[in-house]
C-alpha cells in the first residue's frame, strides 16, 4: 500500500503551565512537537505497511523548523517525508491548507490511502482531513477507531460516532482520520533516529506545486480572525475542606445545598 500521512507541528502542551487567572498557556519555553493526535495516524500507517507492504510518506506544511516534525515521523518508521514551506503558505485557514496539501499529494503521485489525525491540538478544527478528501475526491471516513479488513482494493473500518461504531467499507484510494483508540503509539528507535538524521527531506515551495497563488495562505483563506480574547476560566467557586467523618457529612451537606440552589437536584428529589 502506498500511504500518505499529513501531519502538523504544534506547540507542546503537556508540560505547559497555565496562568490561573486568565487560563492561558504560559508559552515561554514551550517546545514544538508532532501534533499528538497525528501520532495515531503514523502508527496506523506503519501497521498497515507491516501487514500489507508498501511505503509510508509523511507530509507537512509549516515553517522551515517543521522539518523536525517530519524527521520525528521518519524516526518512528515512515519511509520518507516532504515539507511544504513558503511564506505565501503562512496564515492559511483549513480551506487553504487542505487546498495546498491536495496539490502536494497530487505531486506525490498515485496513492492507496491517506491517514490523518482526528484534529490538531492547537487549531482543534478537525477540518483539514475532510477538506483534503473533498479536494482529492476520494472516499472519506472520519473518527476511525478500528480497521477491520483491507482486501480487493477496499478498506473496512469502524468510525466512532455519538451513537456507536458505524461500520463502513471504502473503495481505495481513500482518506481516513483516526482517533486515539485505534492503536498504541510506538516510540522512535535509535536506528530510526539515525535514519531520520541522515535522510534528505525535500522542501517544496509554491513554485513547485500546481496551485493558484490566490488560493494560498492568508490571502486564499475565506475565514479571517477578527479578534482573540483570553477568557477568564477561574470561576471562583465555593470551596469546602473535609476534616474527619463529620467533615464529610458537612461537606456533602454543603454540596447538596449548592446543587439545589442551582436547580440541579430537582429531578432526583421530586
Amino acid at each position: 500500500m502506498t500511504i500518505i500521512v499529513p501531519i502538523k507541528q504544534v506547540p507542546e502542551t503537556s508540560n505547559v503551565r497555565m496562568d490561573p487567572e486568565t487560563g492561558t498557556m504560559i508559552r515561554a519555553g514551550a517546545a514544538t512537537v508532532v501534533n499528538p493526535l497525528d501520532l495515531y495516524a503514523i502508527e496506523t500507517a506503519l501497521r498497515l505497511r507491516e501487514a500489507h507492504g508498501g511505503s509510508v510518506t509523511v507530509l507537512s506544511m509549516g515553517p522551515p523548523a517543521a522539518l523536525k516534525a517530519v524527521k520525528e515521523a521518519i524516526a518512528m518508521g515512515c519511509d520518507d517525508g516532504l515539507l511544504l514551506s513558503d511564506r505565501v503558505f503562512a496564515g492559511a485557514d483549513t480551506w487553504a491548507t487542505s487546498y495546498t496539501l491536495a496539490a502536494a499529494v497530487r505531486r506525490l503521485g498515485a496513492f492507496d490511502l491517506i491517514v490523518a489525525g482526528e484534529r490538531a491540538t492547537d487549531g482543534d478544527t478537525a477540518q483539514v482531513g475532510p477538506g483534503l478528501a473533498a479536494w482529492l475526491d476520494v472516499p472519506l471516513a472520519t473518527y476511525v477507531a478500528r480497521i477491520d479488513t483491507v482486501a480487493d482494493g477496499r478498506l473496512s473500518v469502524q468510525r466512532l460516532t455519538e451513537e456507536g461504531y458505524q461500520q463502513l467499507t471504502l473503495q481505495l484510494p481513500a482518506l481516513i482520520t483516526v482517533v486515539k483508540e485505534i492503536a498504541a503509539v510506538r516510540l522512535p528507535t535509535l536506528r530510526g533516529k539515525k535514519r531520520a538524521r541522515l535522510s534528505e527531506v525535500p522542501v517544496l515551495t509554491a513554485a513547485d506545486l500546481d496551485v493558484d497563488r490566490a488560493c494560498l495562505g492568508l490571502r486564499g483563506s475565506p475565514t479571517k480572525v477578527v479578534r482573540i480574547e483570553r477568557p477568564k476560566v477561574a470561576r471562583g467557586g465555593e470551596m469546602v475542606s473535609v476534616n474527619g467523618q463529620q467533615g464529610v457529612t458537612a461537606a456533602v451537606d454543603a454540596l447538596l445545598e449548592f446543587l439545589r440552589s442551582r436547580g440541579l437536584l430537582e429531578e432526583v428529589s421530586s
Binding site: P11, T13, M25, E229
Partner: peptide, 14 residues
Amino acid sequence: PAIGGNIMATIKTP
C-alpha cells in the same frame, strides 16, 4: 475556543 480553550477567537468570512 482554540488552543485547548485557552483563547476565544472571533472569526468572520467577509
